[in-house]
Each structure stands twice: as structure tokens, then as C-alpha cells.
Amino acid sequence: MIGDYTLLEFSSILAMQGFAGLILFSVFVLMALGLAIIFGQMGVINMAHGEFMILGAYVTWLCSGLVTAYAPALFPAYFFIAMALAFIVTGALGILVEWAMIRHLYRRPLDTLLATWGLSLILQQLYRSVFGAREVGVSLPDWMMGSFALTDIIEVPINGIFVMALTMLISLAVFLLMFRSRWGKQVRAVVQNRAMAGAVGINTKKVDRLTFGLGCGVAGVAGSAFTMIGSTGPTAGQLYIVDTFLVVVFGGAASLLGTIASAFTISQAQSTMEFFMSGSMAKVLTLLTVVGILMLRPEGLFTLKMRR
């Protein structure tokens, strides 16, 4: 007996909280992956990252509306089309932003931070003007509704499992792209030594632009996945941005593996503590612990060893 619960009940509650944590983990990973690519690899602070995510969510919402209206037969599979579209639209916007703004500011990271914050305000207001201030939700296809019953007490929702599977797939794709492809090799070369990378014939400006586009595109897919588990409003992106930055910094800015490990730690800690205390205190404690650890170990959990 633990408190008023039997051992079985208690472990089931832990499992349920753990599962809720896994969904939070998926959102964190999807958002943080894009951010880690941009921040870790390029040293650019993109405060508008949350708004790129929300753009992906709105694209998915539009898709869901259009498919329901014009091609109801496609409805069970519309989500995959929406995801691809979200990637393309946000990636394109990312490339545009890099061209218009970011490339002028590479040596001034603090200024990039302020400029992208300005961009995020503009995008928020744009969403509010175009899509309205109210939150929107997509309708899920039938096969995503409902939940599995693992035991009598533990139930897991199917859309949660779907989002988790998606997260794993996207993480895998990003890993393959960064560590197995020729392009990924170029990106890593530019990160490690820009001048030498340029000297051996890598077009560093093009690599920068595509990296930024890829980071934003991944954010768009994250937004697309986000619509499966929550509703979307113009300011939803801002709610996650600080958490996500902490995830990236805590994981070690240049390490994608660290990002995933820290997303897992933070989300699990938060959702487990949420059961024992109020949600706000759980968040305060989690964030305080992260900030405290960062003060002791500023380079984060995982660091990339390289000569400077």
C-alpha cells in the first residue's frame, strides 16, 4: 500500500503518467529537433520557431477542411498529405526568412534573437487576422480514434501512439540525413570549421539556407503532429518556445542525441511530478532543476568534442 492506493493501482498510475509524459516527449522532440538543427548547427536563435510549428498545424487544419469538402474518399489518409505539405510550406517560409533576414545577422546572435522575436509577433498577428483568434482543431479519421486497453486500468489512446511512432520515424529520418547523407556531412563540416569547409568547395551559404529550411520544415511536421493531440491557436507556439529552448540547451546544443535524451528526462519528470502536486508547481520544479543543472554544467548533458 502506498498512500490510499494498492501497489497495482499505484504502478498503473505511474504507467499512465509515464505515457502522458511520452506524448509530451514526442512534442518536445519534434519541436526541439528543428530547433537543435538551427541552433546547434548554425548558432542561430530562432524565437519564431513556435510560429513555424503553428503554421504546420494550420496547414494540416486547412487540408483536413479541404479534403472533407472535396475528396472525402481520401479522408483516412489525408494526414500524410497534410504532413508533406506542412513540411514544404514551412520549409519554404524558412528559406525565405533566411534569405531576407537571418543571413545578414550570422555574426550577431543576440540580434538574431530580437529580430526573430519580431518575426514571431508578426506571424502571430497574421494567424489571428487570417484564421481568427479562436483555437481550431482537426477532425481525426476513424482509425485514429479510441484507445487500447492494455490492462483493466491502463488505457492508451491510439492518436498518442501514432504521434509517438511518427516522432520516432522523423527522428530516424533526421539522423540518417545528418549522419549518413552527403548533405549531412557538408552541414557538419560547415559547423566544425566554416572557413575550411568553404575552402574545400562546399557552398556554405547554400548549406546554411537549406539547414534553416530543414529545421523549419521539421517544425512544420511537428505542428502537423501537434494537431492530433491538441487544438491550435495563434499563440500556441509561444507557450512551448522557452521549454523547447531549455530542452535543446540542456541536451547540449550541438548534440541531436542529447536533445532527445533531455526531452525524455524533462517530459517524464514533469508528467510524473504532475501527479504528486499541481501542474504549475510541477513545471516550476522541473524548469528550476533544469536551470540549476545548467548553472552547474553550462555545456549541457552531451557535448560534442571538437577543436576550436
Binding site: 533576414m101 545578414h104 545577422l105 550577431r108 540580434d111 538574431t112 530580437l114 529580430a115 522575436w117 519580431g118 518575426l119 514571431s120 509577433l121 508578426i122 506571424l123 498577428q125
Partner: peptide, 11 residues
């Protein structure tokens, strides 16, 4: 206006 201001004072 605020967003534009942020971008303008930086760039």
C-alpha cells in the same frame, strides 16, 4: 508594428 520595430532596429 511591434514586430516590424524589432526587425527594423536590428537590421
Amino acid at each position: 508594428a511591434m514586430g516590424g520595430l524589432f526587425i527594423a532596429v536590428v537590421m
